Simulated scan of single mutants.
Amino acid sequence: MTAVSDVSKTGEPAANGRVAGDEVLRVRDLHVTFDVRAGRLPAVAGVDLTLRRGEVLALVGESGSGKSALSMALVGLNRGPRTTITGSVEFNGMDLVRASDRELRKVRGNGIAVVFQDALAALNPLHRAGAQVAEMITTHRAVGKDAAWNRAIELFTDVGMADPHRAVRAYPHELSGGMRQRVMIALGLANNPDVLIADEPTTALDVTIQAQVLEVLKELQREHHTSIILITHDLGVVAEVADRIAVMYAGRIVEYGTRDQVLFDPQHPYTRGLLDVVPSLTGPVTGRLSAIPGSAVTGVERPPGCAFAPRCRLAGPECEQPVELRQRGGEQGHLDACTKEDHR
């Protein structure tokens, strides 16, 4: 598989015109398999990624494509007796795949933080919101409780809480969905991490609150130069905040590039299928939206070649062979895993 790092050294501009900086996280040949009744489920099957300082990298794909399994494997949150994780995840000179649980506990919430999708389930219902943020600070920093509490109030202000002094004393069930998501972001930023993993941070929020949460993430990225891995299936969210995009299908990356490259010049048939099902706000109404035929591959059995071939109108005999992520013409840094020269 062609490593994304080969392209990352070229210094191509991000979608917003900014030139990405130093590499913060380097993922190489990452595999995550789960032992299930039917056999071994390859949730992530050989992924290479590079995350740079101050950028937003979006992982896009249908449910079951491996986005969350990939992100949780970065900090060992899906480790277990029935899970096998191989490859390497380099962060600050440490390989997180081979790190001990004790070493990972020092990284989680400190160097790499996670904003979970379901804030109500992630927050402790028995503790006040501010106390949970303060605990995150005292776990990794030698500061007193009063200083940590004051820092929690500052963080609640930073993430846009209307009344931070009241919010820090509230229990999770006393806060709205949008406010709970802001608490999760405050938790993630409590120790100024280098990397923030946001797993579907706007799911189940109405569009107004979604816009507010996205604005918080963008503002914090600008101010603190935090690198963000954004996991989502919402291409509207991706268009709003992403610098680069990695499209995942059946545990593999099938297309990779800047936001403009992927959204405005999609190469892989799966990426084009995802974009075709998004309704347009401009132009004539063309009737029913097109849909990708069939269902995503989620079982233990995977095709020997391109996993998308059974659903692809362009599939041919050549798709039965393994397909590498590679660049064929076009702009520098835009990669896809399709055998067809003409993807349209």
Rank of each mutant, 00 (worst) to 15 (best):
S5C: 02
S8C: 07
E12C: 02
A20K: 06
D22C: 08
V24N: 06
R26I: 12
L30I: 05
D35N: 08
R37L: 14
A38K: 09
D48I: 04
T50N: 05
V56P: 01
L59F: 07
G64W: 14
G64Q: 13
S65Y: 11
M72S: 06
T86M: 12
T86L: 13
N92V: 10
N92Y: 04
D101T: 02
E103S: 06
L104D: 07
R105K: 11
K106L: 09
G111W: 04
G111M: 12
V114Q: 05
V115W: 05
D118F: 15
D118Q: 14
L120N: 05
L123H: 00
L123C: 01
L126R: 12
G130H: 00
E135C: 02
M136Y: 00
A142G: 03
K145R: 14
D146F: 04
A148E: 00
N150A: 08
R151P: 00
A152T: 01
I153A: 01
L155H: 01
D158S: 09
D158N: 05
D158R: 14
P164E: 03
L175C: 03
Q181I: 11
R182Q: 00
I185G: 01
L189C: 09
A190F: 02
P193G: 13
D199M: 03
Q210C: 07
V213C: 07
L217D: 03
L220V: 05
Q221Y: 00
R222F: 01
I228C: 01
L230D: 00
H233G: 07
R244T: 07
A246W: 15
A246G: 08
R252S: 10
V254D: 08
D260N: 08
D260A: 09
L263N: 03
H268V: 00
Y270R: 02
L275I: 10
D276A: 15
S280L: 10
G283N: 06
V285M: 05
T286N: 07
T286H: 07
G287W: 03
V297H: 02
R302A: 08
P303M: 15
P304F: 15
F308W: 12
A309N: 05
P310T: 15
P310Q: 15
P317K: 13
P322E: 15
L325I: 03
G329P: 03
E331W: 01
H343E: 04
